[in-house]
Design a protein around this nucleic acid. Structure first.
Lengths: 217, 217
DNA sequence: GAATGTGAAGGTTTTCACAGCA
DNA sequence: TGCTGTGAAAACCTTCACATTC
């Protein structure tokens, strides 16, 4: 029986779990059977203690003196992250970003299956995009329910995002990945994550601009 | 004269600066002249103390009893983030993700101008993509230098990423936004940020899977 | 009165360091 | 011996609370 998690796991730990998972996929391909926290940390530019602490929240997967079994640890992290199953995903807004993400291989590889596409542009509705017919956003609510969609990727313009988001919430969806550059209001039981690629670039421009942080006064 | 920053600013603070910046753009459009930390925090689901503390690292921009002047604060944050100028950006790898990002409006709006596109696919090289000719990746190093590119967005397949990254570093570029799902090695003076949209989805699937975190043993 | 700016307190995350086990 | 697992310490980040200013 899977052990329940008894404390709040930090976002950083969850994020690193995804990083370990990818590293383990690579290690498996490279033929490793076991991996030490030291080596795993080195590859991902973390500390060995960090790796061990992160994993220890979920159980004891390693062997003292040896390290962690690559295949089993990978499988165990997949379980923790919920990747040992398929997730029905819908994409709302099939513009630039949306249409690129439909064919983003990394999603399908981890079990995120894009089942439905929605847009409000009459020219797009009914057309086939990478094997999926684009539906009218007017029918979204019922279709999200019928198709048991559990995750929505929101890629509509900022101005439309809150209204569309409200409909998604009303359809009972509890997880939204929002690409619109706007802060959305959702009930407490809905998981909303914001993704904004411009913000990452801004982080880079900050670093370049403030390259020499010198003591001044 | 711009005050130099005397301590290490945390990544979370930098990230929130981008959030404040977007909020201030909205407030300006809505006609606000001043905004209190309380109101700004409410809009972005933060605490007033957090807002004030973040801003205080960079100076005193507010007026006691009144709040912060929207226009000036926005301008000041733009300076801090390095958004009061243009950045020459190159995109390396014009596949699904890359080609979508070329027309991502949010980049140009913040001054990130995509000047060059590179790919290694002979069928793509020479073709015009949204007004930019796709160049042969074989000529990348010299062209990055000639065009004074300061930021590179890397959207090549994982298997090619490290080699391409090495060339980018050799061309003297100090900031890379990497979309390949692989951990890249760069020298200490190069700013590397990883962006992986699947990891965000995995965070959501973790939350859905571990929805009821119950004390157990 | 209202809201900033900021030391100090409180909380969270990371790192240390070592006991315990293969 | 080598490496995990983990309390305790250290570092870091957020919130509190209040003196200060408009």
């Amino acid at each position: 029986m899977a052990r329940r998690i008894s404390r709040k796991i930090s976002n950083s730990t969850i994020h690193r779990l995804s990083i370990y998972y990818r590293a383990l996929m690579g290690l498996e391909r490279e033929g490793y059977d076991t991996i030490s926290s030291k080596e795993l940390a080195k590859r991902e530019k973390l500390t060995p203690a960090q790796v061990r602490k992160d994993l220890s929240f979920f159980g004891s997967f390693g062997t003292r003196g040896l390290g962690y079994p690559v295949k089993e640890l990978k499988q165990r992290i997949a379980e923790i992250l919920g990747l040992n199953r398929l997730w029905n995903v819908a994409m709302v807004g099939v513009g630039n970003v949306g249409s690129a993400l439909v064919s983003y291989k990394e999603f399908a590889r981890q079990g995120f299956i894009i089942k439905l596409l929605f847009d409000n542009d009459q020219r797009k509705i009914g057309s086939n995009h990478k094997g999926i017919i684009i539906s009218d956003i007017a029918n979204m609510k019922s279709q999200l329910k019928e198709n048991e969609i559990t995750i929505v990727i929101l890629t509509v313009p900022a101005s439309a995002a809150q209204k569309v988001c409200d409909d998604i919430v009303e359809a009972g969806v509890k997880a939204i990945l929002n690409f619109a550059p706007v802060s959305l209001k959702v009930p407490d039981d809905v998981n909303l994550l914001n993704e904004n690629m411009a913000i990452e670039l801004e982080h880079l421009s900050f670093s370049l601009t403030n390259r020499n942080m010198v003591m001044f006064d």
